[in-house]
């Protein structure tokens, strides 16, 4: 594990495997590099280098007071890529939820540095999709009530893990600019999306509240394909095996298609509800 300094924060990062670089970005609040680590990043690292990092305020990275906007987070991503000597690209990017919005924002700024892009349940615009679930709690007391009741039981968390989740969310929501940064996150401009000439894989959950955002992106992005999985928003946790098959197929188009067929008939995934993006 390595620590990388960015503006106002220190980020914890991890590199797995060797070969062409693929960087994976986790989602907001409850996400960190463990979201990808064993189920998805490790298998993918058998044939490439996989880079993971905890975004500012998440996992083992420091709690930055500000800089949760997409411009700063795309700068953070650039610094991580520079650290691993692939800052000029081409790199494959995979992001879930807020991580997908960061990856997309980076690709729109630096399309020549991105080889392929995978957006997993990207909630664009975040101010419509993320804000309601995240910002219902307007005080620490209300947050504690929500986390200790509904959220922790939905995520199967108890005891120490529940306390730590509450601490992290309290710090992110009340000690940083996260709330105002997310409320300021508009959709990316349609003209910029229409001009993004990159292969893009969109993976959305059939029961995700963000599904309409995926359908919209599929129409706007010129080289996008939309794949739907039978789950909700938390695809890396709810349907990791199915997501891995989609990623392998998209990233290794020449691999044996019979060995990587998605078991659509047997796809039954228990929904996880009530957890933050």
């Amino acid at each position: 594990m390595e620590t990388i300094a960015v503006a106002g924060a220190e980020l914890q990062s991890l590199a797995l495997g060797q070969g062409a670089p693929l960087l994976m970005l986790h989602g907001l609040a409850n996400g960190n590099m463990a979201s990808w680590f064993s189920a998805i990043a490790s298998p993918l690292s058998a044939s490439r280098q996989v880079l993971l990092y905890d975004q500012r305020g998440h996992g083992g990275s420091s709690l930055a007071a500000s800089g949760y906007d997409l411009d700063q987070q795309a700068d953070d991503l650039q610094t991580v890529l520079d650290h691993y000597r692939c800052g000029q690209g081409p790199v494959d990017l995979v992001g879930h939820s807020m991580g997908a919005l960061i990856a997309l924002h980076y690709a729109l700024r630096q399309p020549e540095r991105v080889r392929r892009l995978v957006l997993v349940d990207a909630p664009m615009p975040a101010r419509d999709y993320v804000a309601p679930s995240l910002f219902n709690a307007t005080s620490r007391e209300a947050l504690a009530e929500w986390v200790l009741g509904e959220l922790a039981s939905a995520a199967g968390l108890s005891g120490r893990r529940r306390e730590r989740l509450l601490q992290r969310l309290g710090a992110l929501l009340f000690d940083t600019t996260l709330r105002q940064d997310v409320l300021a996150m508009d959709a990316e401009p349609e003209a910029a999306l229409a001009a993004l000439e990159l292969p893009v894989l969109l993976v959305y959950g059939l029961r995700s509240p963000c599904l309409a955002a995926g359908e919209r992106l599929a129409k706007l992005l010129p080289q996008a394909q939309l794949k739907l999985l039978s789950c909700g928003h938390y695809i890396p946790e709810e349907a990791p095996a199915e997501l891995l098959v989609l990623l392998e197929n998209f990233l290794n188009p020449n691999s044996n298609p019979h060995s990587m067929r998605l078991p659509t008939e047997t796809l039954t995934v228990a929904p996880v509800t009530g957890v933050l993006p």
Binding site: L16, G17, A34, S35, F37, S38, A39, S42, P43, S45, A46, G156, E237, P240
Partner: peptide
């Protein structure tokens, strides 16, 4: 160790 953990879900982990 990464190869040993490979493919395990967070919950298995």
């Amino acid at each position: 160790i990464i190869a040993w953990l490979s493919g395990k879900s967070i919950h298995e982990l």
